[in-house]
Simulated scan of single mutants.
Amino acid sequence: MWNLRLAAALSLPLFLLSGEARACATCACGDPTLTSMGTEQPFEGRLRFATQMRAWGLSSGQVTVDGMVLRELRMDVSAAYAPRPWLFLSATLPLQARTVRDVSLARETGWGIGDMEVNARFFVFRDREFSANHLFSVLVGTRLPTSSTLNDAQGRPLSLDAQLGTGSWDPLLGLSYTAYLGDWSFIASATGYLPTRGREGFRAGPSVRSTLAAQFQSTPRWALRLALDGLVEGESNHAGVRSEEGSGAIAYVSPDVLFSPAMDVVVQLGVRVPVFNRLGGNVQQMPILQAALAYDL
């Protein structure tokens, strides 16, 4: 009897202090693979925040006729939540600083909020509930016209190239397959965008963005990733006038290093190097420098 009373007395504080158990993201999904935002394994209640910095630029046209040079520094702030094991909801808000210089050396500068993107990713197949090796998902979402029209000092709207977004609703649909095979993981994805007409009657061409990536991770903290990223885009339309500038296809080779300095934190550093360019309008894309940080709360 005394033993029973002693056991009850010792277990009472544990009972009163018990609550919902929390585990790291690796423990909850059963896979130690370091993942960037949008490629993670889902589990119910997963909440992830991320920020991504990108520096990029391009030139277009003929230098002495209609040449234009664009430079941009962009930070994407993202949040993703899984209310169910098969559903991931996410939102990304871009903060941008952009400079455009034309052949006359006139310069336009704008900064602020770009067009927000909201998505729902449905995991329609997984080979097993815990620590899945194969995942297939469908992505549905849209870009929102959250960017405002930027004006110069005289109150006149900046050129479309200097604006931080098209100001249109752009629905999107994507497919993705991911495989986790020991130290290796692979991803193949394609997402199509169908822009509507936005600011000043401009309508961007329909486009498809694709990724083929392989990642090697022999330790819990470090991973190397190599991807081939592609973009195919149709002709744009400005107030009824069709334009081939920027339409066509481009492909990038994208090496990345992923590092986890602490539990549930992933740092990603990489570059996107254009290796194939068939864009109209003599568009020349510069390498894209990228740094990202993801945190599971």
Rank of each mutant, 00 (worst) to 15 (best):
N3G: 05
L6G: 09
A8I: 10
A9F: 08
P13M: 05
F15A: 14
F15W: 12
L16P: 02
L17I: 09
R22Y: 06
A23E: 08
C29F: 05
G30K: 14
L34V: 10
M37H: 03
T39F: 13
R46V: 01
R48P: 06
R48Y: 06
Q52C: 07
R54A: 15
A55M: 06
A55E: 04
V63Q: 01
V63M: 00
V69Y: 02
E72S: 14
V77N: 11
S78A: 13
S78G: 08
A79M: 13
A82K: 10
P85Q: 09
L95T: 06
L95H: 11
Q96H: 00
A97G: 05
V100L: 08
R101A: 09
G110L: 07
I113D: 09
I113K: 09
M116T: 13
E117S: 11
V118K: 04
R121K: 05
F125P: 02
F130N: 07
F130H: 15
F130E: 10
S131N: 15
A132T: 11
L135Q: 07
L135V: 08
F136E: 06
S137R: 06
S137N: 11
S137Y: 08
L139M: 12
G141R: 05
T142Q: 06
L144W: 10
T146D: 07
S148H: 10
T149N: 01
N151T: 10
D152I: 08
P157R: 02
L160W: 10
A162P: 12
Q163E: 10
L164F: 05
T166Q: 03
G167K: 12
D170E: 14
Y177W: 15
G182Y: 13
W184N: 02
F186Q: 00
I187F: 01
S189P: 00
S189Y: 00
T191W: 02
G192E: 02
R197A: 08
F202T: 01
S207L: 07
V208T: 14
S210Y: 03
A213S: 00
A213I: 00
A213P: 02
A213M: 00
A214Y: 01
F216E: 04
F216I: 10
P220V: 14
L226T: 12
H238E: 12
A239D: 15
V241D: 14
R242I: 08
G248K: 04
A249W: 03
Y252S: 01
Y252Q: 03
V257S: 02
P261R: 14
A262W: 15
Q268Y: 02
V275E: 03
G280K: 01
M286F: 03
L289C: 07
A291H: 02
A294C: 13
